[in-house]
Design a binder for these strands. Structure first.
Lengths: 324, 324
DNA sequence: ATCGGCATGACAAGGGGTTGACATCGATAC
DNA sequence: GTATCGATGTCAACCCCTTGTCATGCCGAT
C-alpha cells in the first residue's frame, strides 16, 4: 500500500503538506491541492487509519455487543445502529455474545484494546459492571447495569399499560403474560409490571408463563407455547414480551383451530416487520427502535463528561391490527 | 490506559521482556512471568491492538459488506460470519451497503484503510470490480464479480431442479416463479434456470414475476404479490427466490381464502427460521448457510496465494413441510 | 577456572501518520 | 524598500508496540 511518503514524492511536496491538507490544518493553494489529489488517486492511496488512530488515541470505531443476530428484533437494532454509526463517519464492530458473561467480558476487553470510541451494550448477564473499566463511553440498551452508566430504552411500563387497557376495552377477563425469563436489570421487566398493575386495578389477576433462559437467542419458543396452552386453556387473551413469541402463538392457534381474535386475543411487543406478515396480523406495542439506536449512537459520539449518567425512555404506541 | 512501559515498571522488568512474553518469542522464567501477569492485572492492561497491527501491517479484522441487516436471510449470514470470525480470533467490521454501489466502494476503501485481513462481499451492484484494488483477500458470497475473485454459494441450479421435481411429483401443471429482480452475476439466477429447465423437460412453461429492484432490503413484497395473483390467477404452484416472498404469499393466500397446499403449492428458498413459523409451514430449499459462512471466513484467513481463484458450491436439500 | 547456555536488559529502528516550532521565499501592501 | 502574509518546507518528537543486535550476569557442567 502506498504511504504518505509516496504521495508526497509523487506530488512533489513535503509529507507535512500532505498531512496538513488531509487534516485541514492550514490553507493549501489550489495548484498544490490538485497535484496531491492527483497523486493520491494515481496511487490509490488510503491513509492508514491504524496509524492515525494510534496517534490520536482513539479509533473511529464503535462496538455493539448484542446477544445474537438471529433474533429479528436484534437485527433491527443492528441495522439501525450500523446506519447511525456510519452516518457519523464511524465504523461498527459487531460482537455477538450469546448472552454469555465470559463472552461479553472478552468482547469488552477486545474493544478497549482496539481503542474504540464507545460501546453500546445490548447484551448482558448480571453483575457485569465490576468487570468493566470505563475509559470509553458506554451506554446500555434496554438494561440498567449500574446507576453510573447511561441507559436507553422504550417506556416499557407504559407499553404494558397500553396493552392491558386495550385488552380490557376488548372485554378480556382472563389475561396471560408469556415472556422470556425475567433477568435483573432488564427494562423489559416493567412490561409485566405495567400490564399486571393495570389489570389489578380492574380486580383481575393474570397468569404468567416464562420461557427457558436464552430462548430468545434462537427464537425457539415452541415447547413453551405448547406447555402454556396445556396448563392454561382458560385464558382469553395473551400479551407477550416480544413479537416472536406472539407470532409463534398465532401459528399454534392456527394449527389447533383456536380462532384469533375470536377465542383468543394476542398482543405482542416491539413491532418487528414480522408482526405485519403473520396471519392474522399482529397487534403490538411499537418501540421506536430507530430513535433509540440513534440516541444511543449519538450520545456516545457526543459524550463529554462522565457525569451525565441517566436513563432515557422513549415513548411507545399501540399498533392495532387483526389479532385483537 | 496503561501501556507496556507501565507494566514493565510495575513488574520491575524491561519493556522488551514484557513484549517478548506477550509474543511468546523467548522462554520466560516462572517468577518473571508471574510478576508480569500480576502487573497486567493490577493495571487492567490491554495491549494496544492499533499499535500492534500497525507494526505487523495487518489487523485482525474482517469486513463483511452486505446490503442490510433487516432481511432475515442476511441476518443468518451476519450471525454465522460473526461466529466464525470470532472463533478464529478476528473481529467483524459490519458494513451495510443498502446495495448501493457508492456505499460499497466507500466501505471497501474504509476497510482497506483499516488494514483488514480480508473482506467478504455479499452485496454488490454490477461492475464493481474495477473499483476494487486487491491488496487484501476478498471472497464474494452468492455472486460472481470476476473470474479472479473466489466466490462461495449454494448449488442454486440444483435447488431449482429439486423444487421443480417436487412440484411435478405433486402433480403441478401451471407453475410460477416469483423472484427478486435478476441481477448480473448473482448465483441466484441459476435457481430460475434449474427450475425452468426441469419443467421444460416435461413440456411445461412457466410464468415469471419479478419484484422491483431492492425489495429484499426491506422485505416488502406486498404489491408484487397482489399484482402477481391478479395477473396469474390460473397457476397451481409457485416457487419463490426466497422464503420471505413465500411467507408473504402464504399470508396473502390465508387472507384471500386460497387453500395451501390444496389450491396452491408454495415452495421457498433458503430455509430461514421463519419458514417453520408460518402457517402452513413452508416447504423450501435449504442452503447450508453456516457451512457457506464458515468456508468464506476460513478461506480468507487461510489465504495464501492469489491464484486459487475459484467458485465453490455447497449442496442444497429440499425440506418438505406443509405448504406443498 | 572456563565455557556454554539461559534469562534478561539496553538500545535503536521502525510501522505510518500527526503536530508544533521555526525557517524560507515569493508576492502584496504601503 | 521594507514590513507582512500566505504557502510550504525541515526537523524532531510522539503515539505504542515489536524486533533484531549485542551485552550482561548467573548457573551448572567440565
Amino acid at each position: 500500500m502506498a504511504t504518505l511518503i509516496d504521495v508526497a514524492e509523487r506530488a512533489g511536496v513535503s509529507v507535512t503538506t500532505v498531512s496538513r491538507m488531509l487534516n485541514n490544518r492550514v490553507p493549501i493553494s489550489p495548484a498544490t491541492r490538485e497535484s496531491i489529489i492527483k497523486a493520491m488517486e494515481d496511487l490509490d492511496y488510503q491513509p492508514n487509519e491504524l496509524a492515525r488512530s494510534l496517534f490520536k488515541k482513539n479509533s473511529l470505531m464503535i462496538g455493539l455487543i448484542i446477544a445474537s443476530a438471529n433474533n429479528y428484533f436484534f437485527c433491527k437494532i443492528i441495522d439501525s445502529v450500523e446506519h447511525y454509526v456510519t452516518k457519523h463517519g464511524y465504523k461498527l464492530l459487531l460482537c455477538l455474545s450469546n448472552n454469555k458473561k465470559q463472552n461479553e467480558i472478552a468482547y469488552f476487553n477486545m474493544l478497549k484494546a482496539n481503542q474504540v470510541a464507545g460501546v453500546i451494550l445490548a447484551s448482558n448477564t448480571q453483575n457485569l459492571e465490576r468487570y468493566l473499566s470505563f475509559n470509553a463511553p458506554l451506554v446500555t440498551f434496554d438494561r440498567m447495569l449500574s446507576p453510573h452508566i447511561p441507559s436507553v430504552s422504550s417506556d416499557n411500563y407504559n407499553g404494558g399499560v397500553l396493552a392491558a387497557k386495550h385488552l380490557l376495552e376488548k372485554g378480556c377477563k382472563r389475561p396471560a403474560y408469556v415472556m422470556d425469563t425475567r433477568r435483573m436489570g432488564m427494562h423489559a421487566n416493567y412490561r409485566y409490571d405495567g400490564f399486571a398493575d393495570t389489570f389489578k386495578k380492574s380486580g383481575i389477576d393474570l397468569v404468567v408463563h416464562a420461557a427457558p433462559l436464552d430462548s430468545f437467542i434462537t427464537m425457539s419458543y415452541e415447547d413453551t407455547i405448547r406447555e402454556f396452552f396445556q396448563t392454561h386453556p382458560e385464558i382469553d387473551c395473551v400479551f407477550t414480551s416480544n413479537d416472536i413469541i406472539a407470532a409463534q402463538i398465532l401459528r399454534y392457534c392456527a394449527r389447533q383451530g383456536i380462532s384469533v381474535p375470536g377465542q383468543l386475543k394476542v398482543i405482542g411487543y416491539d413491532d418487528i416487520d414480522m408482526a405485519s406478515f403473520t396471519s392474522p396480523s399482529l397487534t403490538t406495542i411499537r418501540q421506536p427502535v430507530d430513535d433509540l439506536c440513534r440516541y444511543a449512537v449519538e450520545s456516545l459520539i457526543n459524550f463529554k463528561e462522565r457525569n451525565i449518567a441517566s436513563m432515557t425512555l422513549f415513548p411507545v404506541s399501540l399498533i392495532e391490527r387483526e389479532s385483537t
